[in-house]
């Protein structure tokens, strides 16, 4: 009984490890800065190079936490109060993409323009 349970756990672990097999990689990407201060992003429009992965560094100057999010860019990350975080963004086609503070979704909005 105990042995069986162990082999089940081993099989489960092996499956999970196999299925999330990872390869580490370092990256040298352009980082763009955005600041949340009060109820707005500065800059509220960010120009990035299309077709290349990039990073956004988000600095939250407020005491209240925020959540930097963009459904268009598939990004979602907590930004504690008076803190900064970095997100990786996949290469994007030329176009305009919205990002926002998910805790104040309709009020705090910015855009990324990929060219």
């Amino acid at each position: 009984m105990l042995k069986w349970n162990k082999s089940i756990l081993a099989a489960a672990t092996a499956t999970a490890i196999l299925s999330t097999a990872a390869f580490a990689s370092a990256s040298d990407m352009t980082t763009y800065d955005v600041t949340i201060d009060g109820a707005q992003f500065t800059p509220s429009e960010l120009k990035v190079k299309a077709g290349e992965p990039f990073r956004i560094k988000v600095t939250n100057k407020n005491k209240a936490p925020a959540e930097f999010e963009s459904s268009d860019l598939d990004v979602e990350k907590l930004v504690p109060g008076t803190f900064d975080i970095v997100v990786n963004v996949r290469p994007q086609e030329p176009g305009k993409y919205e990002f926002f503070d998910d805790f104040r979704k309709n009020d705090v909005i910015g855009y990324i323009i990929a060219e």
């Binding site: 099989a11 489960a12 499956t15 999970a16 999330t20 990350k77 970095v86 990786n88």
Partner: peptide, 25 residues
């Protein structure tokens, strides 16, 4: 600076193992 993501990846992987274990049980 990517601790949040790694934490999420880790706990999700643990949950996957537990779900598989339950199914096999």
């Amino acid at each position: 600076g990517f601790g949040q993501e790694l934490f999420d990846a880790g706990v999700l992987a643990v949950a996957v193992v537990m779900l598989i274990w339950h199914n096999l049980w």
